[in-house]
């Protein structure tokens, strides 16, 4: 009996040790990224929120919402926030309008031209933002390429979008086309050729096909695209800084100016927290929508 029992218990002990050894290895493997995440992202978030909510004085730290109150009662700050939201919404709409037809073409086209179009669509990904900004200034800025061509053929100059809200819109849309297209093409990969053919067989023409079959099936992909677009545009700096208006300005340049020129660190952090809360709201909406879709499937 004892002989029979002891190897059994050894096996159990070995299994326990193995399981725990493996668990420890797993923890060690994820430790580095988790520590980095905590140190570089989680800690700064809580630190920033705490710095905006507590004021240090000789009497010690005290709770205060003064910077938030200043932000939400300051018309200039609010104008900057509204401009950022406006640019974000317009960019998201334009990106959808440009990239969805492009992605549909790339997904369903069988011609060789599709490969060339894909290459062209991905090209902006390899152009740094600052180079793109100066290229746009030289093209659509005052006395830029477009003006020179118009002048040469005797037409009046364009109203340049440079240093207007449309400047960053054009730059950000151009900059985000590749990633948006790639994400939509990936989403469209989930719509099978047979599903489309079955719809055509049932009598669906192009518009009905898009409305009833394709769009409902790429809902998640579109949510991902919208979330990424909102997050990246809301936090953009280079293009709004170089191409955008001086007043009102987008939140990125506004934060930088408040920090370095006005040297109001606490206000700059407050602006960052407000930006973060809005982006987190979009993120939560995205996570909730994905979770709801999964729940419905189960």
């Amino acid at each position: 009996m004892t002989d029979m029992a002891s190897p059994d218990s050894n096996v159990r002990k070995d299994g326990f040790a193995k399981r725990h050894g493996r668990g420890l290895t797993g923890l060690l493997l994820v430790a580095a990224p988790v520590i980095l995440l905590g140190w570089l992202i989680i800690y700064p978030i809580f630190n920033a929120v705490a710095r905006t909510l507590f004021v240090n004085s000789d009497a010690g730290a005290s709770f205060s919402l003064d910077t938030y109150q200043r932000f939400f009662t300051d018309s200039y700050s609010l104008a900057n926030l509204w401009l950022t939201l406006w640019v974000t919404v317009v960019c998201a709409a334009l990106l959808m309008a440009i990239c969805l037809p492009l992605a549909l073409y790339l997904r369903f086209a069988k011609s060789r031209i599709a490969a060339v179009v894909q290459g062209l669509a991905l090209f902006p990904m390899f152009v740094p933002s600052v180079i793109l900004a100066y290229a746009l200034i030289r093209t659509i800025g005052p006395n830029g390429g477009v003006d020179l061509v118009l002048n040469a053929i005797g037409l009046p100059k364009i109203n340049s979008p440079y240093l207007t809200p449309w400047g960053p819109v054009i730059g950000l849309v151009w900059d985000n086309i590749p990633l948006t297209t790639l994400m939509l093409v990936a989403g469209l990969g989930g719509v099978s050729d047979n599903a489309v053919e079955a719809a055509r067989d049932a009598g669906a023409r192009h518009v009905a096909l898009l409305r009833h079959i394709i769009l409902p099936q790429i809902g998640n992909a579109m949510l991902v695209v919208l979330s990424f677009t909102v997050l990246s545009i809301f936090s953009a700096f280079t293009l709004p800084y170089v191409l955008g208006p001086a007043s009102p300005e987008m939140m990125g340049p506004f934060m930088q100016r408040t920090f370095s020129q006005v040297q109001d660190t606490r206000m700059a952090v407050t602006q960052a927290v407000i930006t973060f809360v809005i982006c987190a709201g979009f993120g939560a909406f995205y996570v909730r929508s994905i979770a709801k879709n999964r729940e419905a499937r189960q």
Partner: peptide, 20 residues
């Protein structure tokens, strides 16, 4: 004549049902 206008009905190997 394109498929949407043909008097034919097709059943696919993969069923091709619309999951939504």
């Amino acid at each position: 004549i394109p498929p949407e206008k043909r008097p034919t009905g097709m059943v696919f190997q993969s069923h091709a049902l619309w999951s939504h």
